[in-house]
Design a protein around this nucleic acid. Structure first.
Lengths: 210, 210
DNA sequence: GTCTATACTTTGATAGAC
DNA sequence: GTCTATCAAAGTATAGAC
């Protein structure tokens, strides 16, 4: 009932006992925060789900806010790395746009819990932590906006303000935690292709693929 | 700094003193809840924003949860009424779909605060209140799904699973509180037309409007 | 309707033994 | 690393005077 193989297992295949516990705590926290919201999930809730005492958890993070920050930072950093890798490739803008959408969608929709946190609970961070996360988010926006700009210059885009197009796409993806389940017949990768279809036909002019 | 003419003023133009206060409380609550989230906004925050004592507020609602419920219920009921009115019209499905999207978008994006509540804080309601709101939400989904089904039968839709199409649209609209500001050059009605363009070209096959 | 005063609960976090 | 014990702060809500 409790274990949930998660995509976060990058790197080594073997984990020390301490690392295992750490991962268990972080994954459980992500799950609970996603289910009931960060604010309404107490440290007590988390400790009970783990079978530990509240105070024991503070061995693994400094504060509840610190815990949230670590979850978000880790997740966004990994996404950003992949995306900026993609953007560095020498591809025609159409292909880059399509690849961007497939990657973004499959990565985010593929980790529902952490995407939930990113969408719903980012503002629970205060001060510098919040600013740092917002700065990272801007890098996504800049990435896709750059691609769309190219398409616009080339006269391939409909007459839609860039921010409207950008956030229409983000909206489609960021809303997935509210309804999408990966075991419902559509894989994250397929979902990526579907969103690509919708979005590209939606904002691009020129010859449509039949 | 505090007054904000709001679209909720349906019905009479004159309000009694008591109704004025009630409206002031509800609008302020909606604004604060939208800004900082329902859970993280305390009754004290609300009372201070209004210049009243905490206890005085309980004259206007039974509990914090009751307050949230009233805000949501009022908002959704109004939206539903307009939408089901529209759906009852005898229109060809293409036109109905387009009108649906324009109406849905302009109504929701036009009241950012309450849409925020609906998207972010619905789950803060428990038990029957929550169930009642979810039931209302299903009526939206049913409405647009019905229209899309017609289009599919007529062979006018791309090969996209219905739920994916439906929630792609809801995602675009429900995400607007995160970025859209009505004084940023695009009115809610224009935004509705833009989303109509994106979505219709995105999911429909057949002759495109140039 | 609005106030003062207060009851009761839950929360995040710390101290210190083992 | 994990436990027991405890704290101060903040939360919702109520009682009763005016």
């Amino acid at each position: 009932m409790r274990e949930k193989t998660n995509d976060r297992s990058v790197g080594r295949m073997t984990l020390s006992k301490g690392e295992k516990r750490q991962r268990q705590i972080y994954d459980t926290a992500a799950r609970l925060f996603a289910q009931r919201g960060y604010s309404r999930t107490s440290i007590r809730d988390l400790s009970e789900a783990l079978g530990l005492q509240k105070s024991s958890l503070y061995h693994y993070f400094e504060s509840k806010e610190d815990l949230l920050h670590r979850l978000l930072d880790q997740f966004m950093e990994e996404a950003l790395q992949r995306i900026e890798e993609l953007c560095a490739l020498a591809l025609p803008p159409q292909e880059k746009l399509a690849a961007f959408m497939r990657l973004y969608t499959s990565f985010y929709a593929g980790d529902r819990d952490r995407l939930s946190l990113l969408v719903n609970d980012l503002d629970c961070l205060g001060g510098e932590l919040h600013a740092a996360m917002v700065a990272k988010q801007r890098r996504y926006v800049a990435a896709i906006q750059g691609i769309l700009n190219e398409m616009r210059q080339a006269g391939l885009m409909r007459d839609i303000p860039l921010p409207v197009a950008v956030f229409a796409f983000f909206g489609m993806v960021h809303y997935t935690p509210k309804w999408y389940q990966r075991d419902g017949g559509v894989s994250p990768e397929e979902l990526g292709r579907l969103f690509e279809t919708i979005f590209c036909h939606g904002i691009l002019t020129g010859k449509e693929q039949p």
